[in-house]
Design a protein around this nucleic acid. Structure first.
Lengths: 217, 217
DNA sequence: TGTCACGAAAGCGTTGACAATCCGCGCAAG
DNA sequence: CTTGCGCGGATTGTCAACGCTTTCGTGACA
């Protein structure tokens, strides 16, 4: 019943380091020196060590014995692979979202897609892109498919850096808006096949777009 | 250039502990006391700790602060979820296997499926079940889809205990044999859609079988 | 000038000790 | 008999120190 005044707990360190990698504070292939991280996080080296082990298992970090850890670099090819796997999993959760959505959740979905349309029409592609990510997260939540959700979380963390670009491809945003509305429509109709199909169409287009970008810096 | 005489390395401990969990040497919800494991593995407590952290991230172990780690118990519902995710991913790799298989690999596949048929006809369901798992691993390998493969590995490790049962369901083995041959046929024809479809049919049947078993054993 | 040995510094791996927390047990009060 | 309380053992979390491997700069030598 005491507010621990001593450094941060492992879980907090994990979150903070993970976020730092995901939001780009720590760049790919940047070295992660345990002592530096320990000081930065206000924790011991041992704690940092286990956190790095977890992040390695998650695919965000690579470690080499006696040579330390670094932020893992995700190649273009791998980003495509990740997106393909995402496609498979998001189809699954779209199906379950259509089967399991409550009325309240449907209302939230519609509200959200309406908000996205506004951002789209105002040409605010950055907000639109955020809303995009959030829509996918919401659908995952509604699906109540714990296993698929957990995997999608880690996959997304690995490839966030690639996600912003596809929206910016020429003429992509109009199609994207349309595709997302089809997904929400199908879920609203409680049509699992339709939802899965709409999600498959959407993500296969994103896949094609990403594949079309050759090593986009 | 020295054979390390000092205990086992982290990676070895990881493998050994992981295998012990997967093959059932360590039972679900069994406590994993760091000191005991350290002695058993011939490693330090710190090493065991990071290994446990990795296994937690992998979903094989659960840790509670100040209360230690235990082998995670996979519920029936979760086993179904895992199988559903597997279905999504295996369809993906079946597709890629059909696209990427070399002649040599096709030869290996045919050889393997012929071997499985022999076990099946001799009614050796245990060998058949092993061959089954191996067939899926081989297809994953042939697909060269690194990301999907990695995820499938961890998923399989979580649900091995459930895999043996589905084959033993009444009348299931005949259908299973047939379905597997269809998958291999499609890959041999280099027909990605067919391979994906055959895999989907196969695993949806397995799914149904597993769903039909209420709280198996 | 190129290269090779060597030594120092950086940083990882391991150990042991100590602090914090949980859990089961006995005991007393209601 | 039940409930609440405190205590000791068991186990985890944290830390600092030490040994080991890698890396990199420096100087001798061809």
């Amino acid at each position: 019943m005491e507010v621990s005044s001593q450094g941060y707990t492992e879980e907090e360190c994990y979150r903070r380091l993970r976020d730092a990698i995901i939001d780009g504070t720590l760049m790919p292939s940047q070295r992660l020196v345990e002592m530096d991280l320990a000081r930065w996080l206000g924790a011991s080296r041992a704690t940092v060590r286990t956190v790095l082990a977890r992040l390695e298992q998650e695919g965000l970090v690579e470690r080499e014995r006696y040579r330390g850890a670094r932020v893992r670099h995700v190649s273009h090819e791998e980003a495509v692979e990740i997106l393909e796997v995402r496609m498979a999993l998001e189809c699954l959760i779209a199906r379950y979202a259509a089967l399991r959505a409550t009325d309240e959740e449907l209302r939230r979905l519609e509200e959200h897609i309406a908000w996205m349309r506004r951002q789209y029409e105002e040409n605010d592609l950055l907000s639109y892109s955020d809303g995009n990510a959030k829509l996918h997260r919401t659908i995952a939540e509604i699906s109540r498919h714990h296993t698929a959700r957990r995997l999608l979380d880690t996959l997304n963390s690995q490839s966030v850096r690639y996600q912003y670009r596809t929206i910016l491809a020429p003429n992509r945003s109009a199609a994207s808006m349309n595709e997302h509305e089809k997904i929400v429509d199908a879920i609203r109709r409680r049509d699992p096949d339709g939802a899965e199909q709409a999600m498959r169409v959407h993500l296969s287009h994103v896949c094609d777009t990403l594949r079309g970008m050759r090593s986009g810096f």
